[in-house]
Computed example of a mutant assay.
Amino acid sequence: MSPTTVPATTVPATTAGPVLRVPPAAPAVAAAHFRTSLALYADVSDVAAALGAGGDPGFVVLDSRSAESWEQGHVPGAVHLPTALIGERAGRLLDRSVPVVTYCWGPGCNGATRAALALAELGYQVKEMLGGFEYWVREGLAYETSRGTERGAADPLTAPVGAACPVNGAATAPSCGC
């Protein structure tokens, strides 16, 4: 079979290199994977936009970190429930009919993943907020501390100046390019 007759999901071994050594998944497989990913994860910008749109966002945000971390800063309106206490306290703090979005420190921490697993095993609908509190702060979003509300400067590498993702596809906000 010549390279010109090879199906789109197969790359000749001589030209594949490390990126295409394993060929991309078939489009239907990729679509199913990415649909599942969007069902499991939300990003900081989308969570912030939903919380800032006014009214009920349709979910609750859960900070799964320690009390000391919570005091240093947390997403406004978040519920504080450390992962180790989910089994004991989730039933008192959360409504099973309301989806939960978990977060922890950031990409290098799997606390939000462990919290999401614990909640899912208890019957809650759950998503994990990618980037965690680190990216909330890096995007220049307001956060609450034991001293009150604070806001840092947005990191231009992670939150370009003037960039904001539109809420629910609305054309009123500038595009972040994603």
Results as ranks from 00 to 15, higher is better:
R35A: 14
A13S: 09
R138T: 03
T5H: 08
A78D: 04
A171P: 11
G123N: 08
P23K: 09
A67C: 09
D95V: 02
P166I: 13
T4A: 09
A115C: 11
Q72C: 15
A90D: 02
L119H: 04
R114Y: 09
A39I: 13
E121R: 09
R89Y: 04
A153Q: 12
A13H: 03
T10Y: 08
V79C: 03
Y41N: 05
E68P: 07
A42M: 04
R21Y: 06
A49P: 06
L122T: 00
P76F: 03
R138W: 11
G55P: 04
A67Q: 11
G58R: 00
E68C: 11
V6G: 07
L122C: 06
L62C: 10
G177P: 05
T10I: 11
L81A: 10
A32K: 03
A25Q: 15
A171T: 13
V29L: 01
S2F: 04
W105A: 15
A28V: 08
M129F: 02
A171S: 14
A13L: 08
V29I: 11
T9Y: 02
A170R: 10
L141S: 03
G87N: 07
W105G: 14
L122E: 04
L94D: 03
T10G: 08
T149P: 06
P107A: 07
V79Y: 10
Y41S: 07
A173L: 13
V44N: 12
R65V: 06
V75N: 00
L81W: 00
A173C: 13
Y135F: 06
G58I: 01
G108Q: 06
R114H: 11
T113C: 11
I86N: 07
T158K: 13
T145E: 05
G17M: 10
L62S: 05
P18V: 14
A78Y: 14
T145N: 07
L93C: 09
P107M: 03
L122I: 02
A153M: 08
A53C: 01
P99I: 11
G106M: 06
E71Q: 15
Y103D: 02
V79L: 01
V100G: 04
W136S: 12
G140F: 00
H33M: 05
Q72K: 14
T15C: 15
G148Q: 06
A50G: 11
G54M: 09
S37D: 11
G77N: 01
A49K: 04
L117W: 12
A32G: 01
G77S: 01
D46E: 15
T158A: 09
R65T: 08
S64G: 11
C178D: 10
A16D: 02
G169R: 02
P107G: 13
N168R: 09
G177S: 01
A170C: 12
T158P: 12
S175K: 05
G162Q: 00
A30P: 05
S66T: 14
F59S: 14
P3F: 13
A116E: 13
P160E: 01
S66I: 06
R114K: 10
G58W: 03
S66N: 09
E128D: 07
V101E: 08
T83I: 01
A49Y: 04
H74N: 14
Y143S: 13
A84K: 01
